[in-house]
């Protein structure tokens, strides 16, 4: 498995795990179980965990194969990244429009921002997921 594929796996799994926890907290706020202020610190902690996990795991993989990590992306890797960007952008647009559409449902800017954040997270998951598929099956 190439460094870029490992990188895609790391980002996919870290985003999925960290933001699943984040949106579980958002769901608790929406259900009225907790106040949004109460999950604020948890959210900051999760975002910090996201950054730390990305750095530490990428560092570990780079130390395992330093040559590959330093090398520039080759043409196949660049093509895979480009092809994965298209479906990710479509998800982001749909999510952003859903966020804008929320204006007819709620006046809560917090809720609108969560919908936009969810769109960004889903778009990133689609991007890394499609990259993994292309790395595995060919492009």
């Amino acid at each position: 498995m190439s460094f870029r594929e490992k990188s895609a796996w790391i980002s996919f799994v870290v985003i999925a795990v960290v933001f699943a926890a984040y949106f579980w907290n958002v769901a608790r706020v929406l259900a009225g179980q907790v106040e949004s202020r109460e999950v604020y610190l948890v959210s900051i902690g999760l975002l910090a965990a996201f950054v730390v996990l990305e750095i530490v795991l990428h560092l570990a993989v780079a130390l395992h194969s330093p040559g590959e990590a330093r090398a520039a992306r080759d043409e196949r890797e660049r093509l895979i990244e480009l092809k994965a960007t298209r479906p990710a952008f479509q998800v982001l647009v749909v999510g952003a429009l859903a966020g804008v559409g929320m204006i007819h449902v709620t006046s809560s800017t917090w809720l609108m921002s969560q919908v936009v954040l969810l769109a960004i997270v889903l778009a990133e998951l689609v991007k890394f997921g499609v990259q993994i598929v292309y790395f595995r099956q060919g492009v």
């Binding site: 870029r4 594929e5 080759d74 043409e75 196949r76 890797e77 099956q137 060919g138 492009v139």
Partner: peptide, 22 residues
């Protein structure tokens, strides 16, 4: 040729058609 080993493998297996330059 300036690509990764995985790209050479993908070309060999017919999973990727390289650019004319490669």
């Amino acid at each position: 040729i300036g690509v990764t080993r995985q790209t050479v493998n993908a070309i060999e297996l017919g999973k990727y058609s390289p650019s004319l330059e490669v």
